[in-house]
Structure formats: C-alpha cells, structure tokens
Amino acid sequence: MNQDIDFDAILSKYRSDPFDYVHIHTRHTGRVRFKVTEGAQVKGAGGEWHHLPGSLLFVLYRERNPKPIYSSTFGEVSALRRELEGNFVEANEKVMTIKHPLTKREIIESILRKVLSNFNAPERAKYFFAMDIQARIDKFGPRAVTIQPGDEVFTMSLMKRDIPVYYSGEPGIIHSIYFKPGISVGHGEPLIGVCPPGRLPFIQKIISRVKAEWE
C-alpha cells in the first residue's frame, strides 16, 4: 500500500464538485403522488437514533396500504419526473435526484475505502457476519474486532444455502462495514474495510488532514 497519498489531488476533486447525486427509485409498485417539487430542500433522517424520518418525498398508493417514501439524505431535489404524477409505477423506477452536499465524514469514508484493505464479496449474494463475529461486534463494536486470515467472518446466503466465507487478507481490525445484512451485494463489491495495526497512524493522518482542511 502506497502511504504517500496525494491529498491535494483528492481534495481538489471533492472541492470542484462537493456533491453526491442520489437517484431515488421507487422501491415498490403503486400509484405515485409527489410531495416535493424540483428545487425543494429536503432533509434526511434525524434524531439521536435516526428515529425522525426525513422529508416526505412521495407516496405510493396501493389498496389500503399507502407507502410513504422519505428522504434518507439532505440536499436539494435537482430533478423530478413530473410526468409520473398520479400514474402507476413499477418497482425500481427512477423518479427523482437529490443533490446532496458531501459532509466531512462522507469524504473521509470515501477516501478510506481507497486506503483500507477491502474484503470483497466473492459472489453476488446476501451476507451476514458469522455468529461469533456478530456477537463480538455487538458487544465491543467493530473496531475492537480483530480478524485473521482463515477466520470464518461471514455467512453467504446464496440461493437459499448458507455458505461460510473465510477471511483472506491482512490481519487487522474491522474499520468499516459496507454491507447491510440480508441485502444483496454484487460480486467484487467491498464488504468490510480492514485496517492492519501498522496502518492505523496513517488512517488517523488522513482523517486529521480532511478534518483540518475541509470546511
């Protein structure tokens, strides 16, 4: 791992376009009624435990079962497919885009993805932490859990079969978790970012630098 990272190049990329463009898709079918207009400012989930829903974006109407869809991020509605208003939409139809200003934490996470040792999904499948790892994460938090090559770290749920997945890579702590249990992860996408003990100061340096330089 090259530890001579070009901070200026990376930060200038984020300075020139400090936004993420979040495309909102319908997660379900139904008749859509928009609750925002183009240019509207929306907020994401709030509260100490993210228990307060974000702005109401639209509602999908089905028989006695309207499905409100809230924004999970803050930003501005930069595009909206008004022609769909009142019409039936299928699942996974793109309906709007939110221009989301990146936060310091998001930029750090994005950079860390490039410098941590990522352990990638061996197949497109659903992943869960192995029972023992999950118990340790629940008790001590992920960054207190060290993993070694050969450890059973995940259970891969593939075609209704549970298959153990063994870690291969540098030993280290689970620094970042990139998957959600039970949600499909594509082949080759990172599941976790592992930080070898010797690289912790370097990671800390990145975090400090971004914190200091990013307004």
């Binding site: 997660r27 379900h28 079918t29 139904g30 299928e90 699942a91 996974n92």
Partner: peptide
C-alpha cells in the same frame, strides 16, 4: 411488470 420481490404481496 417489475416488482420489488416475488414475495411482496402489496406489489
């Protein structure tokens, strides 16, 4: 018609 899942009755 595309749905979220074959086991989503609402869809």
């Amino acid at each position: 018609f595309r749905v979220a899942s074959y086991t989503d009755p609402n869809d």
